[in-house]
Write a protein that binds this DNA or RNA. Structure first.
Length: 301
DNA sequence: ATGGCCGCCCTAGGCGGA
């Protein structure tokens, strides 16, 4: 199975020389990039993130719609894809270097690892002009929250534990500059779901998987940027089921999508202020929408 | 209220999503 992009991807251009004071990060589970290419491009044109991580692209690399992204100014594209299911892709205005370290157990396309060149001229510390951008699609985990009965749930927990090991190898020291984005398929907080009590046994919000995700976060002191300027009590959702008749009337959402940063980038996320983080909920009620809304986080250097 | 919808695939019911 081919899970990597073709080798004739665009090469670095003059953007390498660009000096940035901010960088806008985005992530969106698009639930078929081919079906919703017009929506993705509309989102990019309106909100102009520098980098977007897409999940559930649901196509092989050779089927990926490169051209519309390039025409919209996103020349740097790295894809991990398989036929019909899963898949992740990172599209960027800034030069991307593909790290050959994608973490895709059992051959599934669920991770694109890249290094982003932000080109801060004033900062000459090693690595300060770059950060790693890790785009993940964590397994959903099936219905039954029991590892002995449900191999998909077991796979989900193992995936998260392997992610922890992966970053133990990579994210050493306080200088490590890492961004983790994606559909983590877990709503960790009480107010990351519409009803904490009713979802305690529902995969995506069980204490077991929330604990494993917390283990990943704590092991490297990653910051969940969504809560930096929002109270823990504020309801935040990025996913709403297709099954609800009126999505925002019932508003039974979950915050499954995340943008995390390593300690070295925490101040940059804080500096962006309360408006630095946004959930673009309007995208969830576009015609034939994804069941996820995109989220963005600005980093200010 | 445990049913309600999606998108994909060797086009049609099954799988995966969550």
């Amino acid at each position: 199975m081919s899970i990597h992009s073709p080798s004739d991807k665009p090469i670095f251009n003059k953007a390498t020389e660009k000096t940035l004071t901010t960088c806008k990060l985005a992530t969106w589970n698009i639930n078929s990039v081919r079906l919703r290419i017009d929506q993705v491009i509309a989102f990019l044109n309106t909100h102009q993130p520098d980098i977007l991580g897409l999940q559930e692209t649901k196509c092989l690399p050779e089927q990926f719609p490169y051209q519309p992204f390039i025409e919209a100014g996103y020349e740097f594209i790295e894809v991990s894809g398989q036929k019909g299911y899963h898949g992740a892709a990172t599209v960027s205005k800034l030069p991307l270097e593909r790290l050959e370290t994608d973490f895709c157990p059992i051959g599934e396309a669920r991770h694109v690892s890249t290094r982003v060149k932000i080109g801060i001229a004033s900062d000459n510390e090693m690595g300060a002009g770059t950060f790693e951008f890790h785009n993940f699609y964590v397994p959903a985990g099936g219905d039954e929250a029991d590892v002995t009965l449900n191999p998909k749930f077991k796979h989900k927990l193992e995936f998260l534990k392997n992610m922890t090991d992966y970053f133990t190898d990579r994210a050493k020291g306080d200088d490590a500059r890492h961004v983790l984005v994606g559909d983590f398929n877990i709503a960790p907080g009480e107010h990351d779901v519409w009803s904490h009590k009713q979802l305690l046994k529902v995969v995506s919000h069980t204490p077991l998987e929330v604990g494993v995700l917390k283990g990943l976060q704590d092991s490297h002191n990653f910051t969940d940027t969504s809560r930096l300027h929002r109270s823990e009590e504020e309801k935040l959702y990025s996913w709403w089921s297709y099954r609800a008749k009126d999505v925002f009337k019932s508003n039974r959402g979950r915050r499954l999508d995340h943008i995390w940063v390593s300690p070295a980038l925490r101040q940059s996320a804080i500096a962006a202020g309360i408006d630095g983080f946004e959930i673009h909920t309007n995208c969830r009620i576009w015609e034939r929408p994804s069941d996820h809304a995109p989220i963005t986080q600005i980093l200010k250097f």
